[in-house]
């Protein structure tokens, strides 16, 4: 498969949110607005690319019996790096995402891709897979965040679209996350998956 093919595969055919249904916690927890969703997606993408690349480089050095703990340590290392960078350069984002940044460690997307792709393919292909899955995840989170923000607060990327009092606040709160994702994945099932 070509590098571009791998990237597109991650965005559409193996879209982590709508097709693989992985990483549901940040998907639901951080998408109260489009910007929040996007920053979460980008943070996860950074970890995915680095972790995929490094794991693919060292996969032959790790004994098979302990490969999962080793992968988790590598992932946790990159999560810590991303966490410290966000804290230093974007404290506002850190405040919004809070607990969900350290929880990228237990996001099943990252370990799942390490196990199913990086452990079998070369470093460059694995980095491309990280980019593809990362973009797919970021797009899904941004779309979900945009829908919730638009329906709930009447804004898109913090720009007002219609007066706030017409919005249904439920969509910004917890139930809206489940309901919006339910309808988005139903639409995805109908039109794209087939």
């Amino acid at each position: 498969m070509s590098k571009l093919g791998i990237i597109i595969n991650g965005i559409v055919k193996e879209n982590p949110t709508f097709v693989l249904l992985l990483g549901m916690c940040p998907t639901l927890g951080t998408t109260s607005s489009a910007l929040n969703g996007m920053s979460m997606g980008l943070a996860t993408m950074a970890v995915l690319i680095c972790a995929n690349f490094v794991i693919s480089c060292v996969k032959n050095l790790i004994p098979d019996k302990v490969h999962i703990p080793c992968y988790i340590v590598i992932i946790a290392g990159f999560v810590t790096i991303v966490q410290l960078l966000i804290k230093a350069y974007a404290p506002a984002v850190d405040e919004k995402l809070g607990l969900f940044i350290p929880l990228i460690v237990v996001n099943c997307i990252v370990l799942g891709r390490a196990e199913s792709f990086a452990a079998k393919n070369g470093p460059l292909d694995s980095a491309c897979d990280g980019i593809g899955i990362g973009i797919g995840f970021t797009l899904a989170l941004t779309l979900l965040g945009l829908c919730r923000e638009l329906l709930g607060a009447g804004t898109a990327f913090n720009m007002p679209v219609y007066p706030e009092q017409f919005g249904a606040l439920t969509f910004v709160l917890a139930p809206g996350a489940f309901i919006t994702l339910a309808y988005l994945s139903a639409l995805f099932n109908k039109f794209i998956k087939k």
């Binding site: 249904l21 439920t170 709160l173 917890a174 139930p175 809206g176 996350a177 489940f178 309901i179 994702l181 339910a182 309808y183 994945s185 139903a186 639409l187 099932n189 109908k190």
Partner: peptide, 21 residues
């Protein structure tokens, strides 16, 4: 048909979350 599986489960969870609100 389109709602089978995950979508209907998510919708149920949404209603449950609304009850907990």
């Amino acid at each position: 048909k389109g709602m089978e599986g995950t979508p209907i489960a998510l919708l149920t969870a949404g209603l449950l979350a609304m009850a907990f609100m």
